[in-house]
């Protein structure tokens, strides 16, 4: 029926090519998508890793002042925490253990918090390291912090070695420092 009209428009080979092209694109798309590793919550490399650590200096929650500079020459764990953060409480004993082992120093940054609750929080776990107050989160921004707890391992020369999102453990920190030493830091 009405064949002339239907076929007058497009040569059948043209439409075959078109269909083939779309099929090829879809095939390529499917293979591409299927071979992606699941990207949800991908742990993204922090741009400050292997760069000189941004400066931290300012009043501490205890009332003094402190600067990251003064730890130059030692491995330092910069730990962003807050008294309102639940998983910070989980990692605190591990930080204490790391600090006591003498492998490296700990410098805490109190993210978007008040000094009083932070002092209570630290003393509860017997944390004796300096905690710089960051009530507006402006230090955290320089370090690319999204949500506490986040920690950064700093080499003795002041280079950021790695960023750790979520609670740390003393054991893993020890290994990290050992490996960093092995790599010449």
């Amino acid at each position: 029926m009405s064949a002339p009209m239907a076929n007058a428009r497009t040569g059948s080979s043209g439409i075959k090519w078109f269909g083939g092209a779309i099929a090829a694109v879809l095939l390529a798309f499917s293979i591409f998508v299927a071979t992606r590793s699941p990207a949800s919550n991908a742990i993204e490399a922090s741009p400050i890793v292997e760069h000189v650590a941004p400066a931290i200096s300012g009043p501490t929650v205890a009332g003094g002042r402190f600067a990251l500079r003064s730890y130059r020459g030692k491995f330092v764990l910069v730990n962003f925490f807050a008294s309102w953060c639940a998983s910070c409480a989980i990692e605190e004993p591990q930080l204490v253990r790391f600090s006591k082992s003498g492998i490296g120093k700990v410098l805490a940054v109190d993210f978007q918090d008040e000094n009083g609750p932070a002092r209570v929080f630290l003393s509860r776990y017997g944390a004796s390291w300096p905690a710089v107050a960051d009530p507006n989160g402006q230090i955290a921004i320089k370090w690319g912090v999204s949500a506490p707890p986040e920690s950064f391992l700093i080499s003795p020369s002041g280079v950021v070695l790695t960023k750790i999102v979520g609670p740390v453990t003393a054991k893993e920190l020890r290994i990290l420092v050992q490996v960093a030493k092995a790599n010449g830091y």
Binding site: S37, P38, S40, A42, I43, A45, V49, L153, L161, T162, I164, G166, T169, K171, E172, I175, L176, V179, A180, N183
Partner: peptide, 26 residues
């Protein structure tokens, strides 16, 4: 696990030992 593993293995082969170890311990 598999997600973190594949990423850790990627780090291993690109020489980012510290990051790889961190993920593996996770």
């Amino acid at each position: 696990e598999s997600r973190e593993l594949s990423q850790a293995i990627g780090y291993t082969y690109s020489g980012q030992d510290v990051s790889a170890l961190r993920l593996l311990s996770l």
